[in-house]
Simulated assay, not measured.
Amino acid sequence: MDLLYFAWVRETIGRSQERVMPPDHVATVADLLDWLAADSEAHRTAFADRARLRAAVDQQFVPLDASLFGAREVAIFPPVTGG
């Protein structure tokens, strides 16, 4: 699975993307964030306030409790504002 990070999430983690193979118990975006945060201080810091995060799975906006079944790409970013 490819992970993409944008804006301050990218800056906090220190990279714009990574490839991971989460274990079977990682079923939702929130599970993925928990799994990543458990092993990395940078991820833990970036994902600490879930209210400040948005996600897209295979380029579709989703809530953090969305399923990862069949997902190839997950993007994590702060809320987007328009103008």
Rank of each mutant, 00 (worst) to 15 (best):
M1F: 02
D2T: 05
D2R: 08
D2N: 06
D2G: 01
L3T: 00
Y5Q: 03
F6N: 00
F6D: 01
A7Y: 02
W8M: 01
V9G: 01
V9I: 00
V9Y: 00
V9C: 00
E11A: 07
E11Y: 03
T12S: 00
I13D: 01
I13E: 00
G14K: 00
R15E: 06
R15K: 10
S16C: 05
S16I: 09
Q17D: 12
Q17Y: 11
Q17S: 12
E18L: 02
E18I: 00
R19D: 02
M21L: 13
M21T: 13
M21Y: 10
M21C: 11
P22M: 03
P22R: 03
P22D: 03
D24E: 15
H25K: 12
H25N: 11
H25I: 07
V26Y: 10
V26G: 08
V26D: 08
A27F: 11
T28N: 05
V29P: 08
V29G: 08
V29D: 07
D31G: 13
D31Q: 15
L32C: 12
L32Y: 14
L32H: 14
L33Q: 12
L33C: 12
D34G: 11
D34C: 11
D34S: 14
W35K: 15
L36E: 08
A37F: 03
A38Q: 07
A38Y: 05
A38S: 08
D39P: 02
S40C: 03
E41P: 11
A42D: 09
H43G: 05
H43V: 07
R44N: 12
R44P: 10
T45Q: 15
T45H: 15
T45N: 14
A46M: 07
F47K: 10
F47C: 11
A48Q: 15
A48C: 14
A48D: 13
D49C: 13
D49L: 13
R50S: 09
R50I: 04
A51K: 15
A51C: 14
A51M: 13
R52S: 08
R52V: 09
R52I: 11
R52L: 13
L53R: 04
L53E: 04
A55S: 13
A55Q: 08
A55D: 10
A55W: 07
V57T: 04
D58A: 07
D58T: 09
D58I: 08
D58F: 06
Q59T: 06
F61R: 14
V62S: 09
P63I: 06
L64T: 12
D65A: 08
D65R: 05
D65Q: 09
A66T: 07
S67R: 09
L68P: 03
L68F: 01
L68D: 04
A71T: 06
E73K: 05
V74F: 01
I76C: 01
F77N: 02
F77C: 04
F77G: 03
F77I: 06
P78A: 13
P78T: 10
P78S: 11
P78E: 09
P79R: 09
V80A: 14
G82F: 14
